[in-house]
């Protein structure tokens, strides 16, 4: 009898390992980080790229229903790719976009904006990357969409694409 119970237990363990492993195989292993949707934005403060005296913080996000924080740099090629969508978003004037200029040189950043346009209402400078960690970012470009309570509504890792643009517009229009 004891033998049969032992057998049964081991049998069940083997079968359940099969189940777990085969389910585990189905899980997408392509890097998909946890997104912080629903969480409140953490406090941050970054000196303005134009004037070191002025600090850009979570309190800079006011007077609008929606905000977006966009992390970018002049040296990052995908940032150029997404720039037209940022420009479009800012022209539609539905939300306020705050830029975080990531590990960049001031004059390169300004040249970049002169060339491609400036969609940002304010730009903070992140000299050593620590602010991007404060914001919970993984790399650049990355965009975080926030509502008026500064809750994270959506997070876009990598350059904004046409679909992402449509999604942003949809979220804002539905509210």
């Amino acid at each position: 009898m004891i033998k049969k119970i032992q057998f049964g237990i081991l049998f069940l363990i083997i079968i359940s390992l099969f189940y777990f492993f085969s389910e585990g195989l189905k899980i997408d292993k392509i890097f998909s980080p946890q997104k912080n949707i629903g969480q409140k934005l953490s406090n941050f403060s970054a000196p303005s790229i134009f004037n070191n005296e002025i600090m850009i913080t979570q309190d800079s996000l006011k007077n609008k229903k929606f905000y977006m924080i966009n992390i970018w740099a002049s040296w990052c090629a995908p940032c150029r790719e997404e720039h037209p969508y940022l420009m479009q978003l800012s022209e539609e004037n539905l939300l306020k976009i705050v830029g975080i200029n990531y590990k960049d040189k001031k004059n390169y950043a300004i040249t970049f904006l002169k060339k491609f346009g400036n969609p940002y209402s304010e730009i903070g400078s992140d000299k050593n990357g620590a602010i991007s960690i404060d914001l919970g970012a993984r790399g650049i470009p990355e965009s975080i969409l926030l509502d008026d309570q500064k809750n994270i509504v959506a997070q876009f890792i990598g350059p904004l694409k046409k679909n992402d643009y449509k999604k942003i517009i949809k979220i804002i229009k539905n509210k």
Binding site: P33, N128, G129, A130, S132, I133, R138, G139
Partner: peptide, 26 residues
């Protein structure tokens, strides 16, 4: 280091790892 497969922040030299090191320092 969540952007590099399986390395620690200390072992990695990726941008993310460097940022986290700065973050820890601050």
């Amino acid at each position: 280091c969540i952007t590099c497969q399986g390395q620690s922040i200390d072992a990695s030299n990726s941008d993310f790892a460097l940022d986290v090191k700065n973050f820890i320092k601050i």
